[in-house]
């Protein structure tokens, strides 16, 4: 049995946060535990977890962490969008191997806080978040797309 008592990141580990509310300050549980217990407000999704099993519990969740043990494993991007598409409005935190060049895409998929396991250069990160003035696709950030801008009256 894996010890999961210290699962999750603390507010101190969050380097970038795009929310005004107070961050949740207690440990997260696994997806399995979240489904079994009725009071968990923070959960951590691993790449192989199905984010959709959390959908019945979204009302009580205030923090969902999506772990990127390896930056090349892109399943977490789908997990994030699925939660946002289902109406989840709580904090969505990218944790693990979160790098400069993933920030803008993660933001588009609905992540609004970032706890990289290695702190990022602030200037590089600011540039990365601002990389795309316009976007081609609809995504979880609700930005108007280039195609929509082209055809607005």
């Amino acid at each position: 049995m894996v010890d999961t008592s210290n699962l999750g990141t603390s507010p101190d580990e969050v380097q970038f946060r795009f929310r005004d509310d107070e961050p949740v300050d207690h440990a997260a549980v696994t997806v399995d535990s979240c489904c079994d217990q009725t009071n968990a407000a923070a959960v951590r999704i691993e790449p192989g977890d199905d984010a959709r099993v959390l959908l019945p519990f979204l009302d009580r969740l205030a923090l969902v962490e999506v772990n990127f043990p390896s930056f090349g494993d892109g399943r977490g991007y789908s997990s994030a969008r699925i939660l946002r598409e289902a109406g989840y409005t709580g904090e969505l935190r990218a944790v693990g191997q979160v790098l400069i060049d993933q920030l803008s895409h993660m933001r588009r998929c609905g992540f609004d806080s970032f706890a990289p396991d290695k702190r990022l250069d602030e200037d590089d990160a600011a540039r990365a978040f601002a990389t795309w003035e316009n976007v081609y696709q609809r995504a979880a950030d609700q930005r108007r797309t280039i195609a929509e801008k082209r055809h607005e009256a």
Binding site: G74, Y77, S78, R81, C109, Y136, A139, I146
Partner: peptide, 13 residues
């Protein structure tokens, strides 16, 4: 082409 360029969800397939 436009849809797939810089697709935020599908860059680490």
């Amino acid at each position: 082409r436009q849809w797939s360029s810089f697709h935020p969800e599908f860059t680490y397939l």
